[in-house]
């Protein structure tokens, strides 16, 4: 997902305090920044929200790649609005993380030095205009699967950020599907682009949910804390069940010969993605890891003088104001 494979952090606080904390979560109460919380809960959330925020920011790049080549003014405007939304999501999430006692700059530095990750999906290239459709339809679609349940997460600021974000994500998914419709019903070349985009984005989208975690202790702890609501497999299945009919409606073929409806389970059976590839991408060996990190580092390094300049000006203004008082 946008936050993949979040390990829960160990906690060794007073068992009574922990039990009380757990009882609050079980009662459905929201935990607010000023409330007592186990150190492990706090650190796990920082990692999860931070990774989610970084994903929104890095996620601007594959779509930003097509803004200057969008085929019509309308499509250009819609894509700009979408990428702008993603930056806004990053901002809400960094703010939510800051309530846990870590600054946005500190989180950014962790992204840039590689000690924090972002979603594997943004390490795949966007090669044709149909990829703008596929990203909206599949990537935002997969994100929604995960984020809708997270609206009920136990940490108040995270939950509220998710509620705002989900509203916009469904618009993203619709505009993506709309591009796919145009392409799938367009010229033979456009159809070819649409099928090709689905071929390239199908398995990476399934990977977004992360490997099976049904047996994972981390997952169990995170679920008890309501930082995680569903298992990876549950969400992946839900995503496949939702997406297959949509692909059929487009007249496109999902690149999985073993995909078929299972009347007994009431779900689609499907092939697992290549998890070796997933771990390669996480390690930094995805098709675009180097480019994505270079772009973010360049933005940060070349922006240093701007951030310093604006800060210096703000300080001067404050000093002048105090002097005048």
């Amino acid at each position: 997902m946008y936050a993949q494979m979040i390990q829960s952090e160990k906690t060794d606080e007073d068992p009574r305090a922990l039990a009380e904390f757990q009882a609050r979560i079980d009662r459905g109460e929201k935990i607010e920044p000023k409330d007592w919380m186990p150190e492990g809960y706090r650190r796990t959330l920082i990692r999860q929200i931070g990774q989610h925020a970084h994903s929104e920011i890095v996620g601007q790049l594959p779509e930003g790649n097509w803004i200057t080549r969008a085929p019509t003014l309308e499509r250009k405007a819609i894509l700009l609005a979408k990428v702008q939304d993603e930056a806004g999501h990053g901002l809400y999430l960094y703010c939510a993380a800051e309530t846990l006692g870590i600054s946005r700059d500190a989180l950014t530095e962790k992204l840039l030095d590689g000690s924090m990750k972002y979603s594997s999906i943004f390490n795949y290239p966007t090669l044709t205009w149909a990829d703008m459709g596929a990203v909206g339809w599949l990537v935002d679609g997969a994100a929604i699967m995960n984020q809708v349940p997270l609206q009920r997460t136990s940490f108040g600021p995270y939950s509220r950020a998710m509620i705002r974000i989900c509203k916009e994500e469904s618009f993203h998914q619709r505009q993506g599907y709309d591009i796919m419709m145009k392409m799938a019903n367009g010229t033979p070349e456009q159809r070819r682009m649409a099928q090709n985009a689905l071929d390239r984005f199908w398995y990476p989208s399934l990977m977004m949910f992360g490997p099976s975690d049904a047996e994972s202790v981390h997952s169990a702890q995170n679920m008890a804390w309501k930082i995680k609501i569903n298992t990876n497999d549950e969400l992946r299945q839900k995503f496949v069940d939702q997406t297959v009919p949509q692909a059929e409606y487009l007249g496109l073929t999902i690149p999985d010969p073993d995909l078929k409806w299972n009347a007994e389970t009431g779900h689609y059976d499907f092939s697992e993605p290549d998890w070796t590839e997933f771990f390669d991408v996480l390690k930094g060996d995805g098709p675009c890891n180097a480019e994505r990190m270079e772009a973010r580092r360049k933005a940060w390094d070349e922006g240093a003088w701007v951030r310093e300049g604006l800060l210096a000006h703000a300080r001067k203004k404050r000093a002048a104001k105090t002097a005048a008082e």
């Binding site: 920011i57 803004i67 930056a87 933005a299 940060w300 701007v306």
Partner: peptide, 11 residues
């Protein structure tokens, strides 16, 4: 888009 010095500027 995606390359600005500060997130607020990107937006």
């Amino acid at each position: 888009c995606g390359h600005s010095p500060v997130l607020e500027e990107d937006i």
